[in-house]
């Protein structure tokens, strides 16, 4: 009886597989982090769902996990299922070599998005990623363009050691080292609004003066602003405001703070990689070579920085994450 059931299952699976292949769709296996991880990830997942749809000629299998080993076994499953392409945003940078080699041997082509993997670039076609260091440079360049008489910066960092923290910190650290800006305090808020609020409260209570808040994400900028509000310190674009407020990630609610003139700057971290990958897959299917890759086979997402003086409602709708 068990054998019979198993046989039926195998037949059914085979039928499904052959049906799926029959309609000529491009078969994708997408491995990502779960949308609940963050606003960034939710927008990322939605972007992929929008582009890689049945109407656009794709047949998609997705797997979400925050755990590297679960992602790897899912990838192996997709290879066995015979997908044409694997799209991976890895939970961890290591441990993928064997699986990617398997994919290569099976003729499955791999794209990385959002996060790099430590492996030989020959194992993937291309990686579409953000360059956090450039995000930092864009923000600091904007800050310098304000030409304030002096820069006394409260710097609230993300979780230490993360890509985003290192990139966004580097540009500002360079200014501190060069002496063009003064570091009032530099402390990690661990991406948390509450911790950022406590840090800024401590600075205010110490009586030290500062005129810039550089928070490495929107949540921490919000926490910092709450502390400013409690202490009666003005901020934003209003005439005579005491503190310039900067955040990152471009959540919709954060961009609305910009539009209202409460904050001054928000740096984008683009979760929109699907269109670029879609274009490259079409190229490969047509047999043309991929263009615009650097030596690590990366394509760096174009990322903006928004200024409260110029931001529009359209920007919020086009680039804002979440709702």
């Amino acid at each position: 009886m068990k054998k019979f059931v198993a046989l039926i299952l195998i037949l059914a699976l085979g039928l499904c597989a052959s049906l799926a292949v029959a309609d000529g769709a491009v078969r994708l296996g997408i491995i990502n982090n779960p949308p609940s991880e963050s606003g960034y990830r939710a927008a990322n997942v939605a972007d992929f769902a929008r582009v890689f749809s049945a109407e656009n000629g794709y047949e998609v299998m997705t797997y979400y996990s925050l755990k590297n080993d679960e992602q790897i076994s899912a990838a192996q499953g997709f290879i066995t299922d015979g997908v044409d392409y694997l799209l991976i945003s890895a939970a961890d940078t290591t441990g993928w070599d064997e699986t990617l080699t398997q994919a290569q041997e099976a003729g499955v082509r791999v794209f990385l998005f959002d996060r790099m993997i430590d492996c030989d670039p020959s194992l993937y076609e291309a990686a579409v990623v953000s360059d956090m260091a450039t995000e930092g440079i864009t923000a600091v360049t904007w800050l310098k363009s304000l030409e304030l008489p002096e820069y006394k910066v409260v710097h609230i960092q993300g979780v230490m050691g993360t890509d985003a923290q290192r990139g966004r910190t580097a540009a500002l650290d360079a200014e501190f080292a060069a002496g063009t800006m003064t570091k009032v305090v530099q402390q990690t808020g661990n991406w948390s609004a509450d911790e950022a609020k406590l840090i800024v409260e401590a600075v205010i209570n110490s009586g030290e003066s500062f005129n810039v808040i550089y928070a490495e994400n929107d949540d921490m900028a919000r926490g910092a602003v709450a502390a400013l509000d409690d202490a009666g310190i003005t901020h934003g674009t209003a005439e005579g405001a005491q503190v310039v407020v900067m955040g990152f990630d471009c959540n919709k609610w954060a961009l609305r703070e910009l539009l209202a003139g409460n904050w001054n700057y928000d740096g984008q971290c683009s979760p929109f990689q699907a269109d670029v990958i879609d274009g490259m897959i079409k190229n490969l299917e047509a047999g043309t070579a991929l263009e615009g890759l650097n030596e690590a086979k990366q394509i760096i997402s174009v990322e903006k920085g928004f200024d409260a003086r110029t931001i529009t409602e359209e920007d919020i709708n086009a680039y804002g994450l979440g709702e």
């Binding site: 991406w191 609004a193 509450d194 609020k197 949540d219 609610w253």
Partner: peptide, 16 residues
Amino acid sequence: IGASRLSMVNHEQLML
């Protein structure tokens, strides 16, 4: 209290 402080709920970060 935690949510009202910043008028926001971040399910990953709040009172971590």
